[in-house]
């Protein structure tokens, strides 16, 4: 009753990091609840994933079934409903990912599970779980609690924890899939790979990144001048690619690219977690934003809190002068 289950996420033959991040958190919690961690894996031909997961979880339960070849929320939901009617976990964790947000809310409704999404931290205090999440693009933290009976369900935010080295040697057990037949109302058809553009920003040494604060496409000229003065490539937040100022392959963040340049200059970007996840590995980060509370400043090494339209042209001019 005090066990913590983590739904394993994998895609196209790869285990996804979020799984290992969640198992780290689960293991810390299980020490307090006095239960075990259980990695629950649904897939087809996933023996090697199961084996690898023993390094991170007390137990690995897996259903190996051709019906689980590709993720399908409807099949997952059916299997999990059947499974959780028998097994009674204390807590179930899923990634707050394209998979988790597509599955968890429906499962929570069907099983009437107390459910909190996009949890950034989870404490166990006075025999109770305290999920923490954020509102208003990270400007406000919100403490929640669960009412009602376990199992509790959370989706956990990606890239909040380090991906660990193996720290356990757990047991593997193959279990029968409760899924008896295929379904026809939702079918997986295919993957479409990311667009490839003219510049591969994952290889860039210096990146100038633009966000909604740049306001209009015509202001990109000012950004291009800065970039050319320091031989940088230009990338963007999602708001800027959605607006069409730059192609989608220049987007940095969870749904775009992960970049690790030597220098990242964020201009008019608020620093939503989906963006930070893609750029916080940069060696040096400069942020220019007029909002002193913008979350981007938490990651910055140098901060200019001011109007970018006053700062950027002068910055370009001075850089041109200094570099001759």
């Amino acid at each position: 009753m005090s066990n913590i289950f983590v739904l394993v996420e994998h895609r196209q033959g790869e285990l996804r990091d979020i799984t290992l991040e969640m198992l780290t958190k689960a293991s810390q919690l299980a020490e307090k609840t006095g239960g075990e961690t259980v990695a629950l894996l649904l897939g087809n031909g996933v023996d090697s994933h199961a084996e690898k997961l023993t390094g991170y979880s007390d137990k690995v339960l897996y259903m190996d079934d051709p019906l689980f070849e590709d993720y399908n929320s409807e099949k997952y939901q059916k299997a999990l409903v059947a499974f959780f009617k028998e097994q009674k976990p204390y807590l179930v964790m899923m990634g707050h990912t394209a998979q988790g947000v597509d599955l968890a809310p429906a499962l929570a409704v069907e099983l009437k599970m107390p459910f909190v999404t996009d949890v950034i931290d989870l404490e166990y205090v006075d025999d109770k779980l305290q999920p923490l999440r954020q509102y208003y693009g990270g400007k406000v933290n919100a403490e929640f609690s669960f009412k009602g009976e376990p199992p509790y369900l959370v989706t956990f935010r990606e890239a909040t924890l380090e991906v660990p080295e193996p720290f356990k040697s757990g047991k593997v057990e193959k279990i029968d899939s409760p899924l008896k037949e295929d379904i026809d109302y939702r079918k997986f058809l295919e993957y479409i790979e990311a667009e490839v553009g003219d510049v591969d920003i994952t290889q860039s040494e210096i990146l100038v990144a633009v966000g909604r604060g740049v306001k209009e496409e015509k202001n990109m000229a000012m950004i291009e001048e800065l970039a050319s003065a320091i031989k940088a490539d230009i990338c963007a937040s999602r708001a800027a690619t959605d607006a069409g100022w730059l192609p989608h392959d220049r987007q940095v963040g969870t749904s775009g690219k992960t970049v690790k340049p030597k220098l990242y200059i964020a201009i008019g970007i608020s620093g939503a977690f989906q963006h930070l996840a893609g750029m916080k590995g940069a060696k040096t980060i400069i942020a220019i934003n007029k909002d002193p509370e913008a979350p981007i400043f938490a990651e910055a090494d140098y901060a200019i809190i001011d109007d970018l339209f006053k700062v950027v042209p002068k910055l370009t001019e001075k850089l041109q002068e200094l570099r001759g």
Binding site: A98, R186, K187, L189, K257
Partner: peptide, 16 residues
Amino acid sequence: AHRELEGGISEVVEIT
């Protein structure tokens, strides 16, 4: 429906 996944990849699903 083309579902956006992480890293710029998407998956196509057909639903009734």
